[in-house]
Amino acid sequence: MRPNPHQFVAFAYVVREGSFSAAANRLGVTQSTITQHVAKLEAQVGSQLLIRGRGGVSVTRTGQEFFDLADRLVALESAIAERLEGFETLEKGHLKVIANAPQPALEAIRDFAARHPFVEIDFALHDWTTATRLIRERHVDVGIITDAPMSEDFEHVPLQQISYVAYVHPDSPLAQRTELSLADLAHQTVILPEFGSLTQRVVSTALKSHAITLPRTLRMTTFPVMCEAVLHGIGVAIFLSRSGRLAQSLVEVPIRELSAQHEISILAPKDRARLRLVQAFIDCAERLAA
């Protein structure tokens, strides 16, 4: 049986948006239409593609294989539509952007939104492992990632080099130091991001390499929460330097064992990177980094 492109498009949007209702809203059709398209596609494939749950939908292994193809079809249809419509000023559209740290993602979003105020942007922060997986599985349009994995399937645009630092309360004696060692933090409560973060991996590797132990650590979900914890006197946070405006109230102190530079870059599937919405966002990020 010849595949129905409408079924693939409906399926792709359900995965990208996370629910049947959100996909219907994005495509401007009824939820029952989306449900019927996906059901017919599953019947034709002969296997379940989506698992429905209270929190939305998840993709089966077969579903992920078909989503990779379906999302490429959506990108191709978008490219064809752009050619037919011409390359006039961007007045509408939708972008899904993720990052593993607030900066420079929020600066790029601010600049893009000022230039294209009618484009809807969904933005989310994720730990490094989740962020790279979402990009690799094509669930987003653009990712701004530290030490992004390299692949011929993705457009890779370097933005800046950055290193890890200790974020210290300005009243702490450590704030007067020009450099710290991880050993200097052995008597401190050290605040780290959640498991799966690049920070956690980098710090763990450095501790093992230098035979240093940090007896008291706390895990927190996002960098802003980590900064709030430092401001409340809970401890010292380790994260990438210049990661957010909230940190301007804190003192950044370099850490000797974490002095290596890490690259922040934009990552996008190559077929999506050619779409004018995605390219416009990449251009904004590059201008800010220049």
Rank of each mutant, 00 (worst) to 15 (best):
P3L: 01
Y13G: 00
Y13C: 06
G18M: 11
G18V: 09
S19V: 04
S21W: 12
A23P: 04
G28F: 13
Q31I: 04
K40Q: 10
L41A: 02
A43N: 15
L49S: 07
L50S: 05
I51E: 15
G56K: 05
G56Y: 07
R61Y: 14
T62I: 13
D68I: 08
E82Q: 14
R83E: 10
E88Y: 05
K96L: 06
I98M: 06
Q103M: 08
Q103P: 02
I109Q: 02
A113G: 02
V119H: 05
I121P: 02
A131T: 01
E137S: 15
D141F: 00
D147L: 06
F154T: 10
E155C: 07
P158W: 12
Y164L: 12
V165Y: 03
V165G: 00
L174I: 05
E179Q: 11
L182A: 00
L185D: 01
Q188L: 03
V190F: 01
F195M: 08
G196S: 08
T199I: 05
T199Y: 03
L207K: 01
I212L: 07
M220W: 09
M220N: 09
C227A: 12
E228K: 14
A229L: 07
G233A: 06
F239A: 13
R242A: 08
G244Q: 05
R245D: 11
S249D: 10
L250W: 06
P254T: 01
P254A: 00
S259E: 14
E263W: 10
L267D: 12
L267Q: 13
K270M: 15
R274A: 13
L275W: 03
L277W: 01
D283E: 14
